[in-house]
Measured scan of single mutants.
Amino acid sequence: GSPLAQQIKNIHSFIHQAKAAGRMDEVRTLQENLHQLMHEYFQQ
């Protein structure tokens, strides 16, 4: 897949890990990143 698709997959797993660790501030930051990446992805 594209590097962007790979990045989106990575962030999904980072979010999963951050949630499991209870780091909600990190989850929020990652979700904002994910949102931006998704936006770029669909602009392609």
Score class of each variant (00 low, 15 high):
residue 21 A to T: 05
residue 12 H to L: 15
residue 37 L to P: 00
residue 12 H to N: 10
residue 7 Q to I: 12
residue 20 A to Q: 11
residue 36 Q to D: 07
residue 7 Q to D: 04
residue 16 H to F: 05
residue 24 M to Q: 07
residue 26 E to Y: 04
residue 40 E to W: 07
residue 4 L to W: 03
residue 22 G to W: 03
residue 11 I to H: 02
residue 6 Q to Y: 02
residue 7 Q to R: 07
residue 20 A to C: 13
residue 32 E to D: 10
residue 37 L to A: 03
residue 12 H to G: 04
residue 21 A to D: 09
residue 20 A to T: 08
residue 16 H to I: 12
residue 21 A to Y: 01
residue 33 N to H: 15
residue 17 Q to I: 13
residue 3 P to D: 15
residue 4 L to K: 03
residue 37 L to N: 00
residue 29 T to V: 13
residue 31 Q to D: 03
residue 10 N to C: 15
residue 37 L to E: 00
residue 14 F to N: 14
residue 14 F to Q: 15
residue 10 N to V: 12
residue 33 N to Q: 15
residue 27 V to E: 01
residue 11 I to V: 08
residue 21 A to P: 01
residue 14 F to H: 15
residue 18 A to V: 03
residue 29 T to K: 14
residue 30 L to G: 02
residue 41 Y to R: 03
residue 4 L to H: 03
residue 35 H to T: 08
residue 15 I to L: 08
residue 21 A to L: 10
residue 9 K to F: 03
residue 28 R to Y: 06
residue 43 Q to C: 15
residue 29 T to P: 02
residue 9 K to N: 06
residue 32 E to L: 06
residue 35 H to L: 11
residue 2 S to A: 11
residue 6 Q to I: 08
residue 14 F to V: 12
residue 20 A to H: 06
residue 12 H to W: 13
residue 13 S to Q: 14
residue 40 E to A: 06
residue 14 F to S: 15
residue 2 S to E: 13
residue 8 I to R: 00
residue 26 E to L: 14
residue 27 V to I: 05
residue 32 E to I: 07
residue 35 H to Q: 09
residue 15 I to N: 00
residue 6 Q to H: 04
residue 1 G to R: 11
residue 31 Q to I: 14
residue 40 E to S: 04
residue 10 N to A: 13
residue 30 L to A: 05
residue 9 K to D: 04
residue 28 R to G: 04
residue 34 L to P: 00
residue 3 P to Y: 12
residue 11 I to A: 04
residue 19 K to D: 03
residue 6 Q to F: 02
residue 29 T to W: 10
residue 23 R to V: 02
residue 32 E to N: 09
residue 26 E to I: 13
residue 14 F to A: 15
residue 3 P to F: 13
residue 25 D to R: 05
residue 31 Q to A: 09
residue 6 Q to N: 06
residue 34 L to S: 00
residue 43 Q to I: 08
residue 31 Q to S: 09
residue 15 I to D: 00
residue 30 L to I: 02
residue 40 E to N: 05
residue 29 T to H: 11
residue 12 H to F: 13
residue 43 Q to Y: 07
residue 27 V to T: 02
residue 39 H to T: 09
residue 23 R to I: 02
residue 15 I to M: 04
residue 33 N to I: 15
residue 16 H to V: 13
residue 35 H to G: 04
residue 39 H to N: 10
residue 13 S to T: 09
residue 33 N to M: 15
residue 5 A to Y: 14
residue 8 I to D: 00
residue 24 M to I: 09
residue 8 I to F: 01
residue 22 G to H: 05
residue 21 A to E: 11
residue 23 R to G: 02
residue 12 H to R: 12
residue 3 P to S: 15
residue 1 G to H: 12
residue 39 H to W: 08
residue 4 L to F: 03
residue 17 Q to T: 07
residue 35 H to S: 08
residue 41 Y to Q: 04
residue 22 G to V: 02
residue 39 H to I: 13
residue 17 Q to A: 13
residue 17 Q to N: 08
residue 6 Q to S: 05
residue 29 T to I: 14
residue 36 Q to R: 12
residue 20 A to R: 10
residue 7 Q to W: 14
residue 43 Q to N: 11
residue 2 S to G: 12
